[in-house]
């Protein structure tokens, strides 16, 4: 029987950094908030890493905490009522020497959706989770997730048609 690889936070970062970053970007309206969310999730993982028994658990935990942290972020008064007019620029001399991910039309339309629809769409289509898994991770009923999916698709259709018609 092969020896189990020891689960550490640094290994979790190497393994799931892209997944968490994509989910954070799909949830947040700008990359600064996505970066903050990314860091917060992994720093939280430090105090819970010993409770997680397998990499599957770690993945599920990361998805759940990312979605919950995003919800908490949008629940705050400031974030609910104040919106950035533009994406804050990243400057090479401030140490943030990486570029903005290129914005594509479908992804831009997804980011226009309300946060709860964004996470459902991302988890279903990109992470390829089932409705039951999404319901378990987000703490909702399966019927709720299904109806959210339906509404999100309708809204996306509308947004993309609008974009094409423009």
């Amino acid at each position: 029987m092969p020896k189990e690889e020891k689960i550490t936070t640094e290994k979790a970062i190497d393994r799931y950094a892209d997944m968490v970053y994509r989910l954070a970007l799909s949830q947040m309206k700008n990359t600064t908030d996505a970066d903050d969310l990314f860091q917060e999730v992994f720093v939280r993982l430090v105090s819970h890493i010993q409770e997680l028994e397998s990499w599957e658990h770690v993945k599920a935990w990361l998805i759940r905490v990312t979605v919950n942290c995003a919800k908490k972020h949008f629940g705050q008064y400031w974030n609910k009522n104040v919106d950035f007019l533009e994406e804050p620029e990243r400057l090479a001399d401030t140490g943030g020497a990486y570029e903005l991910p290129e914005e594509h039309p479908v992804r831009a339309a997804v980011r226009e959706l309300p946060p709860k629809y964004r996470s459902v769409i991302h988890l279903y289509y990109f992470e390829e989770l089932t409705v039951a898994e999404i319901a378990r991770l987000t703490g909702q009923k399966e019927a709720t997730v299904k109806s959210q999916m339906h509404r999100a698709r309708e809204m996306l259709k509308g947004l993309l048609n609008e974009e094409h018609s423009l």
């Binding site: 936070t9 640094e10 970062i13 950094a17 892209d18 968490v20 970053y21 994509r22 970007l25 799909s26 970066d35 990314f38 860091q39 992994f42 720093v43 993982l45 430090v46 105090s47 140490g95 943030g96 020497a97 990486y98 991910p101 290129e102 594509h104 039309p105 479908v106 992804r107 997804v110 769409i121 991302h122 289509y125 990109f126 996306l156 993309l160």
Partner: peptide, 30 residues
Amino acid sequence: RMEQYNRETSQIHAPEELIRKTKEAVREEE
């Protein structure tokens, strides 16, 4: 459209700088 979304999203990778900073923050927390 969803395939397009997947293609677009799969092009996104967590920036190296952010990963480095996060690892530092994790070490401090530990």
